[in-house]
Write a protein that binds this DNA or RNA. Structure first.
Length: 294
DNA sequence: CTTACACCCTGCTCGC
DNA sequence: TGCGAGCAGGGTGTAA
Protein backbone atom coordinates (compact mmCIF):
# COMPACT_ATOMS: atom_id res chain seq x y z
CA UNK A 1 0.00 0.00 0.00
CA UNK A 2 2.26 2.76 1.10
CA UNK A 3 4.71 4.44 -1.19
CA UNK A 4 6.21 7.82 -0.46
CA UNK A 5 3.00 9.88 -0.80
CA UNK A 6 1.03 7.54 1.45
CA UNK A 7 3.77 7.52 4.08
CA UNK A 8 3.94 11.31 3.96
CA UNK A 9 0.18 11.44 4.39
CA UNK A 10 0.40 9.17 7.41
CA UNK A 11 3.18 11.36 8.81
CA UNK A 12 1.04 14.46 8.50
CA UNK A 13 -1.87 12.68 10.11
CA UNK A 14 0.15 11.45 13.07
CA UNK A 15 2.22 14.58 13.65
CA UNK A 16 -0.34 16.70 15.53
CA UNK A 17 -1.20 13.85 17.89
CA UNK A 18 2.30 12.54 18.42
CA UNK A 19 4.77 15.41 18.50
CA UNK A 20 5.10 16.91 21.97
CA UNK A 21 3.34 13.97 23.58
CA UNK A 22 4.88 11.35 25.83
CA UNK A 23 4.39 7.59 25.61
CA UNK A 24 2.46 6.84 28.79
CA UNK A 25 2.33 3.14 27.97
CA UNK A 26 3.04 0.95 24.99
CA UNK A 27 1.46 -2.40 24.32
CA UNK A 28 3.46 -4.74 22.08
CA UNK A 29 1.20 -7.67 21.27
CA UNK A 30 3.60 -10.00 19.48
CA UNK A 31 7.36 -10.57 19.44
CA UNK A 32 7.85 -9.64 15.81
CA UNK A 33 6.43 -8.16 12.66
CA UNK A 34 8.64 -8.68 9.63
CA UNK A 35 11.57 -8.67 12.05
CA UNK A 36 11.72 -9.08 15.82
CA UNK A 37 11.06 -5.88 17.76
CA UNK A 38 14.29 -4.47 19.23
CA UNK A 39 15.38 -5.47 22.72
CA UNK A 40 13.34 -3.85 25.52
CA UNK A 41 11.18 -2.09 22.90
CA UNK A 42 8.41 -1.11 25.32
CA UNK A 43 10.75 -0.05 28.12
CA UNK A 44 12.80 2.16 25.80
CA UNK A 45 9.63 3.93 24.60
CA UNK A 46 7.67 4.39 27.80
CA UNK A 47 8.26 7.80 29.32
CA UNK A 48 9.92 9.16 26.17
CA UNK A 49 8.59 12.33 24.59
CA UNK A 50 8.32 12.62 20.81
CA UNK A 51 10.33 15.63 19.65
CA UNK A 52 9.68 15.35 15.92
CA UNK A 53 8.13 13.09 13.32
CA UNK A 54 9.82 12.98 9.93
CA UNK A 55 9.93 10.78 6.86
CA UNK A 56 12.84 9.27 4.97
CA UNK A 57 11.81 7.45 1.79
CA UNK A 58 9.02 5.10 2.95
CA UNK A 59 10.08 5.21 6.61
CA UNK A 60 8.58 7.22 9.45
CA UNK A 61 11.05 8.48 12.04
CA UNK A 62 10.01 9.66 15.50
CA UNK A 63 12.84 11.42 17.34
CA UNK A 64 12.56 10.81 21.06
CA UNK A 65 13.71 12.73 24.15
CA UNK A 66 15.85 9.71 25.06
CA UNK A 67 18.26 10.29 22.19
CA UNK A 68 16.84 7.40 20.24
CA UNK A 69 14.62 7.45 17.17
CA UNK A 70 11.74 5.11 16.49
CA UNK A 71 11.88 3.91 12.88
CA UNK A 72 8.66 2.57 11.41
CA UNK A 73 8.09 0.93 8.05
CA UNK A 74 4.55 0.11 6.98
CA UNK A 75 5.39 -2.73 4.61
CA UNK A 76 2.42 -3.48 2.39
CA UNK A 77 -0.50 -3.29 4.78
CA UNK A 78 0.62 -1.24 7.78
CA UNK A 79 -1.85 1.38 9.06
CA UNK A 80 -2.19 3.67 12.00
CA UNK A 81 -5.42 4.60 13.69
CA UNK A 82 -5.62 7.64 15.93
CA UNK A 83 -8.22 7.70 18.69
CA UNK A 84 -8.36 11.20 20.14
CA UNK A 85 -9.18 11.59 23.83
CA UNK A 86 -12.20 13.82 23.31
CA UNK A 87 -13.79 11.03 21.37
CA UNK A 88 -15.11 8.59 23.92
CA UNK A 89 -14.14 5.07 23.01
CA UNK A 90 -16.80 2.60 23.99
CA UNK A 91 -15.48 -0.94 24.26
CA UNK A 92 -16.68 -2.91 21.29
CA UNK A 93 -17.26 0.24 19.29
CA UNK A 94 -13.71 0.83 18.20
CA UNK A 95 -13.59 1.79 14.57
CA UNK A 96 -11.25 0.10 12.14
CA UNK A 97 -10.46 0.62 8.52
CA UNK A 98 -12.51 -1.52 6.21
CA UNK A 99 -10.67 -4.77 5.82
CA UNK A 100 -8.66 -4.52 9.01
CA UNK A 101 -9.37 -6.58 12.07
CA UNK A 102 -8.46 -6.02 15.72
CA UNK A 103 -6.57 -9.32 15.58
CA UNK A 104 -3.98 -7.49 13.46
CA UNK A 105 -3.53 -4.61 15.92
CA UNK A 106 0.09 -5.31 16.84
CA UNK A 107 1.18 -2.20 18.75
CA UNK A 108 -0.87 0.27 20.78
CA UNK A 109 0.76 3.53 21.83
CA UNK A 110 -1.03 5.29 24.68
CA UNK A 111 0.03 8.91 24.99
CA UNK A 112 -0.02 11.13 28.07
CA UNK A 113 -2.51 13.33 26.20
CA UNK A 114 -5.04 10.52 26.25
CA UNK A 115 -4.69 9.85 22.56
CA UNK A 116 -4.26 6.24 21.53
CA UNK A 117 -2.39 5.32 18.35
CA UNK A 118 -2.78 1.77 17.06
CA UNK A 119 -0.58 0.05 14.49
CA UNK A 120 -2.42 -2.55 12.42
CA UNK A 121 -0.67 -4.71 9.84
CA UNK A 122 -2.42 -7.69 8.23
CA UNK A 123 0.54 -9.12 6.37
CA UNK A 124 3.18 -8.03 8.91
CA UNK A 125 5.66 -6.89 6.28
CA UNK A 126 6.14 -3.71 8.28
CA UNK A 127 8.59 -3.34 11.14
CA UNK A 128 9.81 -1.03 13.88
CA UNK A 129 13.27 -0.40 15.24
CA UNK A 130 15.02 1.90 17.69
CA UNK A 131 18.35 3.48 16.80
CA UNK A 132 20.45 6.30 18.25
CA UNK A 133 19.24 9.53 16.66
CA UNK A 134 22.80 10.64 16.00
CA UNK A 135 23.41 7.52 13.94
CA UNK A 136 20.23 7.54 11.88
CA UNK A 137 21.92 8.27 8.57
CA UNK A 138 24.37 5.41 8.98
CA UNK A 139 21.98 2.88 10.51
CA UNK A 140 21.34 -0.34 8.61
CA UNK A 141 17.97 0.82 7.34
CA UNK A 142 19.14 4.12 5.91
CA UNK A 143 22.81 3.71 5.01
CA UNK A 144 22.18 2.40 1.49
CA UNK A 145 19.14 4.52 0.65
CA UNK A 146 19.25 6.63 -2.49
CA UNK A 147 18.10 10.19 -3.05
CA UNK A 148 14.78 11.63 -1.87
CA UNK A 149 12.65 12.07 -4.98
CA UNK A 150 10.99 15.21 -3.61
CA UNK A 151 14.28 16.75 -2.52
CA UNK A 152 16.62 19.02 -4.44
CA UNK A 153 18.76 16.09 -5.56
CA UNK A 154 16.26 14.82 -8.10
CA UNK A 155 17.01 16.21 -11.55
CA UNK A 156 17.67 15.03 -15.07
CA UNK A 157 21.38 15.34 -14.37
CA UNK A 158 21.14 13.14 -11.28
CA UNK A 159 19.02 10.50 -12.98
CA UNK A 160 21.44 10.36 -15.89
CA UNK A 161 24.37 9.92 -13.53
CA UNK A 162 22.57 7.21 -11.54
CA UNK A 163 21.38 5.26 -14.58
CA UNK A 164 24.28 5.64 -17.03
CA UNK A 165 25.52 2.29 -18.39
CA UNK A 166 22.70 0.42 -16.66
CA UNK A 167 21.13 -2.20 -18.89
CA UNK A 168 18.43 -3.05 -16.34
CA UNK A 169 15.01 -1.80 -17.44
CA UNK A 170 13.87 1.67 -16.36
CA UNK A 171 11.15 0.05 -14.24
CA UNK A 172 13.69 -1.88 -12.17
CA UNK A 173 16.08 1.05 -11.81
CA UNK A 174 13.31 3.34 -10.55
CA UNK A 175 12.21 0.72 -8.02
CA UNK A 176 15.76 0.31 -6.69
CA UNK A 177 15.71 2.07 -3.33
CA UNK A 178 19.53 2.37 -3.39
CA UNK A 179 19.23 4.79 -6.31
CA UNK A 180 15.98 6.65 -5.60
CA UNK A 181 14.24 5.94 -2.30
CA UNK A 182 10.48 6.19 -2.01
CA UNK A 183 9.02 5.12 -5.33
CA UNK A 184 7.04 1.90 -5.50
CA UNK A 185 5.24 -0.05 -8.17
CA UNK A 186 2.37 2.39 -8.63
CA UNK A 187 4.28 5.64 -8.93
CA UNK A 188 6.99 4.11 -11.12
CA UNK A 189 4.28 3.03 -13.56
CA UNK A 190 2.66 6.46 -13.37
CA UNK A 191 5.89 8.42 -13.80
CA UNK A 192 7.00 6.37 -16.81
CA UNK A 193 3.59 6.73 -18.41
CA UNK A 194 3.53 10.48 -17.89
CA UNK A 195 7.08 10.79 -19.20
CA UNK A 196 6.27 8.71 -22.30
CA UNK A 197 9.04 6.22 -21.55
CA UNK A 198 8.83 2.47 -22.06
CA UNK A 199 9.25 0.49 -18.83
CA UNK A 200 11.46 -2.07 -20.58
CA UNK A 201 13.84 0.51 -22.03
CA UNK A 202 17.36 0.20 -20.61
CA UNK A 203 17.80 2.62 -17.73
CA UNK A 204 21.01 3.86 -19.32
CA UNK A 205 19.09 5.05 -22.37
CA UNK A 206 18.17 8.31 -20.64
CA UNK A 207 21.87 9.23 -20.46
CA UNK A 208 24.59 9.80 -23.01
CA UNK A 209 27.72 7.65 -22.94
CA UNK A 210 29.36 10.21 -20.69
CA UNK A 211 26.45 10.32 -18.25
CA UNK A 212 24.90 13.56 -19.46
CA UNK A 213 21.10 13.74 -19.42
CA UNK A 214 19.13 13.23 -22.59
CA UNK A 215 15.80 15.11 -22.81
CA UNK A 216 14.04 12.00 -21.50
CA UNK A 217 16.01 12.25 -18.24
CA UNK A 218 14.69 15.75 -17.57
CA UNK A 219 11.20 14.68 -18.51
CA UNK A 220 11.36 11.70 -16.17
CA UNK A 221 12.62 13.76 -13.25
CA UNK A 222 9.86 16.30 -13.77
CA UNK A 223 7.13 13.68 -13.96
CA UNK A 224 8.36 11.82 -10.88
CA UNK A 225 8.21 15.05 -8.92
CA UNK A 226 4.84 16.00 -10.37
CA UNK A 227 3.09 12.70 -9.72
CA UNK A 228 4.40 12.50 -6.16
CA UNK A 229 3.41 16.08 -5.39
CA UNK A 230 -0.08 15.49 -6.77
CA UNK A 231 -0.43 12.32 -4.74
CA UNK A 232 0.72 14.02 -1.55
CA UNK A 233 -1.83 16.77 -2.20
CA UNK A 234 -4.55 14.18 -2.78
CA UNK A 235 -3.54 12.45 0.44
CA UNK A 236 -3.85 15.70 2.30
CA UNK A 237 -7.41 16.14 1.19
CA UNK A 238 -8.18 12.55 2.06
CA UNK A 239 -6.70 13.16 5.47
CA UNK A 240 -9.07 16.04 6.10
CA UNK A 241 -12.01 13.86 5.14
CA UNK A 242 -10.97 10.89 7.21
CA UNK A 243 -9.44 12.48 10.26
CA UNK A 244 -12.80 13.66 11.50
CA UNK A 245 -14.60 10.49 10.56
CA UNK A 246 -12.84 7.67 12.35
CA UNK A 247 -9.18 8.59 12.60
CA UNK A 248 -8.14 6.11 9.94
CA UNK A 249 -4.84 6.82 8.27
CA UNK A 250 -2.85 5.18 5.58
CA UNK A 251 -5.15 4.41 2.70
CA UNK A 252 -6.43 6.59 -0.04
CA UNK A 253 -7.38 6.18 -3.68
CA UNK A 254 -5.71 8.31 -6.27
CA UNK A 255 -6.77 8.72 -9.87
CA UNK A 256 -4.15 6.68 -11.71
CA UNK A 257 -3.53 7.04 -15.44
CA UNK A 258 -1.87 3.66 -16.01
CA UNK A 259 -1.71 1.60 -12.83
CA UNK A 260 -4.32 -1.17 -12.63
CA UNK A 261 -5.99 0.02 -15.84
CA UNK A 262 -5.22 -2.96 -18.11
CA UNK A 263 -7.42 -2.88 -21.23
CA UNK A 264 -8.64 0.65 -20.56
CA UNK A 265 -7.92 3.61 -22.84
CA UNK A 266 -4.72 5.57 -22.41
CA UNK A 267 -5.40 8.92 -20.78
CA UNK A 268 -2.58 10.83 -22.43
CA UNK A 269 -3.90 13.61 -24.66
CA UNK A 270 -4.16 12.57 -28.30
CA UNK A 271 -3.26 8.93 -27.67
CA UNK A 272 -5.79 6.31 -28.72
CA UNK A 273 -3.83 3.46 -27.17
CA UNK A 274 -4.80 0.88 -24.59
CA UNK A 275 -3.07 0.22 -21.30
CA UNK A 276 -1.26 -3.13 -21.28
CA UNK A 277 -0.01 -5.22 -18.38
CA UNK A 278 3.29 -7.08 -18.35
CA UNK A 279 5.32 -8.63 -15.54
CA UNK A 280 8.78 -7.29 -14.73
CA UNK A 281 10.83 -8.85 -11.96
CA UNK A 282 7.71 -10.47 -10.60
CA UNK A 283 5.58 -7.33 -10.40
CA UNK A 284 2.89 -5.96 -12.68
CA UNK A 285 3.80 -3.11 -14.97
CA UNK A 286 1.06 -1.09 -16.65
CA UNK A 287 1.94 1.01 -19.68
CA UNK A 288 0.74 2.26 -23.04
CA UNK A 289 2.62 0.71 -25.96
CA UNK A 290 1.46 3.55 -28.24
CA UNK A 291 2.87 6.54 -26.38
CA UNK A 292 5.57 5.05 -24.17
CA UNK A 293 8.59 4.62 -26.42
CA UNK A 294 11.95 2.97 -25.91
C1' DC B 1 29.40 -6.16 -9.27
C1' DT B 2 24.83 -7.22 -11.45
C1' DT B 3 20.05 -9.52 -12.09
C1' DA B 4 16.41 -13.04 -11.08
C1' DC B 5 13.73 -15.38 -8.11
C1' DA B 6 11.83 -17.39 -3.93
C1' DC B 7 10.16 -15.96 0.19
C1' DC B 8 7.94 -13.57 4.20
C1' DC B 9 2.20 -13.27 5.53
C1' DT B 10 -2.82 -12.83 5.09
C1' DG B 11 -6.88 -11.83 2.55
C1' DC B 12 -9.46 -10.97 -1.51
C1' DT B 13 -11.12 -11.97 -6.20
C1' DC B 14 -11.83 -14.69 -10.02
C1' DG B 15 -12.75 -18.75 -12.70
C1' DC B 16 -14.25 -23.36 -12.72
C1' DT C 1 -21.63 -22.56 -2.87
C1' DG C 2 -17.00 -24.25 -2.57
C1' DC C 3 -12.23 -24.29 -3.68
C1' DG C 4 -7.85 -23.56 -5.54
C1' DA C 5 -5.00 -20.33 -8.20
C1' DG C 6 -3.35 -16.02 -8.64
C1' DC C 7 -2.61 -11.58 -7.08
C1' DA C 8 -1.61 -7.52 -3.89
C1' DG C 9 1.21 -0.77 -3.49
C1' DG C 10 6.89 -3.73 0.84
C1' DG C 11 11.84 -5.49 1.19
C1' DT C 12 15.47 -9.38 1.99
C1' DG C 13 18.33 -13.26 1.14
C1' DT C 14 20.29 -16.36 -1.94
C1' DA C 15 22.07 -18.02 -6.12
C1' DA C 16 23.68 -17.60 -10.68
Amino acid sequence: MPELPEVETVRRGLEPALVGARFASVEQRRPDLRFPFPERFVARLEGARVEALSRRAKYLVADLSTGESLIMHLGMTGRFTVALPERTIVPGEFHHDPGTMPIHDHVVFKLDTGTRITYNDVRRFGYMDLVASAELASCKHFAALGIEPLGNALSGETLARLFVHKIAPLKAALLDQRLIAGLGNIYVCEALHRAGLHPEAPAGSIATKTGRPRPSAHRLAEEIRAVLNEAVAAGGSTLRDFAHADGSLGYFQHGFRAYDREGEPCRNAGCGGTIARIVQSGRSTFYCADCQTR
